[in-house]
């Protein structure tokens, strides 16, 4: 018998043993393969795509418009510390300090898809970090207020009067910002109180009645 015939005979005779061995071998491969930690949340490619998209920002003007129109879908989240939050913040904002972002108490505010969550801090720095954490975990509808409260102050609270050479839109925007500022309670036009014009009192001296003199 040739050697090749022998191997063939072996394979045919032990067909099922060989197949069973292969099956166990492949299953054992799963156990023996080195384990690695899987990425949590969305795929890195998608994360980068989201991160470089400008759609994740909302401008202060857009936000002011939403607040003034009382858009019910907006949820404002202040990422600064509690102390800073207590000093000033945006109307109806919720305070979630960055370090507590993923706490059980707060995660319900950002891990949902009912509201458009707008994150802000003094600039966009903390808010960006929070956005990245959230987006990586696959939370939906997260936005960052571009420029944060500093930008808010520079545009809405204290807008700059446009130069004479600027286009008409700049003036319109200025008007909008000025009006928005008034809505938020600042920069109301000063109404000069005109003092009521004092009436000049002309004192008319009454002539003393002269004693009647003898006439003709």
């Amino acid at each position: 018998m040739s050697k090749r015939y022998k191997t063939k005979k072996f394979i045919v005779k032990r067909e099922y043993q060989i197949l069973a061995f292969i099956l166990v071998f492949i299953a054992a491969g799963l156990v023996l393969l080195p384990k690695y930690k899987k990425n949590e949340g969305i795929m890195p490619e998608l994360f980068v795509k989201n991160a470089i998209s400008s759609e994740r920002y909302i401008s202060t003007d857009q936000l002011a418009d939403k607040i003034i129109n009382q858009d019910p879908s907006v949820l404002l989240i202040d990422m600064r510390s509690e102390k800073e939050f207590n000093e000033f913040s945006l109307p109806n904002a919720i305070n979630i300090p960055l370090k507590n972002l993923l706490d059980d108490d707060y995660i319900g505010y950002i891990d949902q898809d009912i509201y458009d969550v707008i994150l802000f801090s003094n600039d966009s720095f903390y808010a960006d970090q929070a956005w990245m954490l959230g987006n990586r975990l696959g939370f939906k509808n997260l936005y960052v207020l571009k420029g944060g409260l500093n930008e808010w102050f520079n545009t809405i609270i204290n807008p700059k009067y446009p130069d004479e050479t600027m286009p008409r839109e700049a003036f319109k925007l200025y008007d909008f910002r000025k009006a928005a500022g008034i809505y938020f309670g600042v920069g109301a036009p000063k109404t000069e109180k005109k003092a009521a014009p004092t009436k000049k009192v002309i004192t008319v001296k009454k002539k003393k009645k002269r004693a009647a003199e003898g006439g003709c």
């Binding site: 069973a20 799963l30 156990v31």
Partner: peptide, 18 residues
């Protein structure tokens, strides 16, 4: 238990049943 171990045990049970 780890799913990988479960699969291995399950495979051996299958072959045992055959």
């Amino acid at each position: 238990i780890s799913p990988y171990w479960f699969i291995l045990i399950f495979t051996i049970i299958a072959i045992g049943s055959f």
